[in-house]
Amino acid sequence: MKIVELDKAPEKENPHKVLAKGLFDTEQVQVVHLELKPGESLKLHKTPMNVFFYVLEGTGIVVIGDEEETVSKDMLIDSPKGIPHLLRNESDSLFRFLVVKMKE
């Protein structure tokens, strides 16, 4: 059994300059914990694999293609490969979510 504690998980450098911690990484799946402080945002980008986001805490904005939605705790958001997407925190509190990438 392998258990990963968030506090002890390694930080991952990323082009968005936000706190990202790698929780799980295999040939099939990668799970990253992301934290956006008020005013922080991911840059608009595409991924070469299907991704989903699971909101752990707070409220944020998700943009996928030409769709934009406000999301909050316990919501799962599907983001198909090759479609530009971003997440941003326009609230006054922390926005935390998991990014799950399904590798091909």
Rank of each mutant, 00 (worst) to 15 (best):
Val4Trp: 00
Val29His: 01
Gly82Arg: 02
Glu68Tyr: 07
Lys12Trp: 04
Lys103Ser: 06
Asn14Gly: 10
Ile83Ala: 04
Lys17Asn: 14
Asp7Trp: 04
Leu19Gly: 04
Leu19Thr: 14
Ile77Tyr: 06
Leu6Lys: 14
Met102Cys: 06
Val51Asn: 09
Val29Asp: 02
His45Ile: 07
Gly22Tyr: 00
Leu86Val: 02
Phe97Ser: 03
Leu87Trp: 07
Gly58Arg: 01
Leu94Lys: 12
Phe24Met: 02
Gln28Trp: 10
Gly60Met: 02
Ser91His: 11
Ser93Leu: 08
Phe97Cys: 04
Gly82Leu: 04
Tyr54Met: 07
Ile83Arg: 09
Thr26Asn: 09
Gly82Ile: 04
Lys21Asn: 05
Val100Thr: 12
Leu76Met: 14
Ile83Trp: 07
Glu13Ala: 14
Lys17Asp: 11
Val99Asp: 00
Ala9Ser: 10
Ile61Trp: 02
Lys2Leu: 12
Glu35Cys: 10
Asp25Ile: 03
Met49Lys: 03
Val71Asn: 08
Ser72Phe: 12
Phe52Gln: 08
Val4Glu: 06
Ser41Trp: 07
Glu67Cys: 03
Gly60Phe: 03
Tyr54Ala: 01
Ala20Pro: 00
Val62Tyr: 05
Asn50Asp: 15
Thr26Lys: 07
Arg88His: 04
Asn89Arg: 03
Lys103Gly: 07
Asp7Lys: 15
Glu57Met: 03
Leu36Val: 06
Glu68Arg: 13
Leu36Gln: 04
Lys12Phe: 05
Glu69His: 13
Glu13Ser: 14
Val4Ile: 11
Ser79Cys: 15
Ser91Asp: 12
Val4Pro: 00
Met102Asn: 04
Leu56Trp: 06
Val51Pro: 01
Thr59His: 03
Leu42Lys: 01
His85Phe: 15
Thr26Tyr: 08
Asp74Gly: 01
Glu69Leu: 11
His85Thr: 13
Gly82Asp: 10
Gly65Arg: 11
Glu57Lys: 14
Glu35His: 12
Glu13Trp: 08
His85Trp: 11
Asp92Gln: 14
Pro15Glu: 10
Met75Leu: 09
Leu34Gly: 05
Glu27Phe: 08
Phe24Gln: 00
Lys46Thr: 15
Leu34Arg: 11
Asn89Asp: 08
Met1Pro: 05
Phe53His: 09
Ser93Arg: 15
